[in-house]
């Protein structure tokens, strides 16, 4: 017999890990330790140093870099990055969910092929793909030509090098990372439950909101994580499609290394950013765990 706690495979996991589980987890732990923790410690040390003219660190101790991090300029940029990431995530959920659902409910032979079709555009080179977008969005571009033919009154839209262009680029780039995890959850849905709900007289909207959404919530949460988190630190799309006018946190950090030659300050920005993320994420995990304990 199993206890309720063991059955509820939630965030906190099931039974307590024995030595065998630890052994199996060891490769992952070693990987995290060697390639995440150690490099992060290097950055931490650098962030308290000064720099020479090459951007190299000079080993002293200074908190000046962190004082600069608190400059309102950087806080504003940070806020803007979160805003873009949130908006991107929201649009990706809205656009991606129906697609993931459709693929997940397709006949088995079709599913993997549709998934592959979603991913293939991203096997082209990022730069070439982005220049194609520029060709579409520019003033004398494809989109404006179509618009001109359909609704000449609107006039050519000034899209490229605006926040709208950045958002299009972000949604385009991150959409598959929303669709794929949701697909994993949808595929698991038991068709019988949905039909049963229909049979009980529930309308499509009601089936959707009270059956499908709750059952695919883990997939939506995973997709949100995979889109929101990486898009905060993104930098290349702002440069190419936004004209590099509105820097996001990813651009600022990148520039400390590849323009301003100030590694210590770049490291300080990075450390502050990672700590903020880790604390938030860890808090969310704890919150979810508590909720499950209380709910279970």
């Amino acid at each position: 017999m199993t206890t309720g706690a063991e059955r509820r495979g939630g965030a906190g996991g099931g039974r307590r890990a024995g030595w065998r589980a630890w052994v199996l987890l060891a490769p992952l732990l070693a990987w995290l330790l060697l390639f995440i923790v150690v490099p992060a410690l290097v950055l931490l040390v650098y962030s308290f140093c000064e720099r020479d003219e090459l951007g190299r660190v000079v080993y002293t101790f200074t908190a000046e870099n962190y004082q600069r991090v608190l400059d309102p300029v950087y806080l504003r940029i940070f806020g803007r990055s979160i805003g873009y990431a949130a908006l991107t995530t929201l649009i990706c959920v809205g656009v991606g969910f129906p697609v993931a659902y459709y693929i997940g409910r397709s006949p088995e032979g079709l599913r993997d092929r549709l998934l592959l079709l979603i991913m293939v555009p991203f096997w082209t080179s990022f730069l070439i793909r982005t220049y194609a977008w520029i060709t579409i969005l520019k003033q004398e571009g494809l989109l404006n030509a179509v618009l001109q033919a359909l609704a000449p009154a609107l006039g050519p839209l000034d899209l490229l090098y605006t926040p709208a262009a950045v958002l299009i680029g972000l949604v385009y780039g991150y959409l598959p990372f929303m669709i794929l995890p949701i697909y994993g959850s949808v595929e698991k849905l038991d068709g019988a439950i949905i039909e049963a709900a229909h049979d009980l007289g529930a309308g499509p909207l009601r089936v959707f909101s009270s059956v499908i959404i709750p059952l695919t919530l883990p997939g939506i949460a995973a997709g949100t994580l995979l889109v929101f988190v990486p898009s905060i630190a993104m930098f290349a799309i702002t440069d190419l499609m936004g004209g590099a006018r509105v820097p996001l946190i990813g651009n600022v950090i990148q520039n400390q290394f590849l323009q301003a030659r100030d590694w210590p300050f770049g490291a300080a920005l990075g450390v502050a950013f990672l700590v903020l993320f880790a604390v938030t994420y860890w808090g969310l995990l704890r919150f979810r765990e508590r909720g499950e304990e209380a709910g279970g």
């Binding site: 995440i36 490099p39 990486p230 630190a233 946190i249 990813g250 950090i253 990148q254 990075g270 950013f273």
Partner: peptide
């Protein structure tokens, strides 16, 4: 963390 870590870092 690797998902959010800026590539340059």
């Amino acid at each position: 963390i690797p998902m959010v870590m800026p590539e340059i870092l």
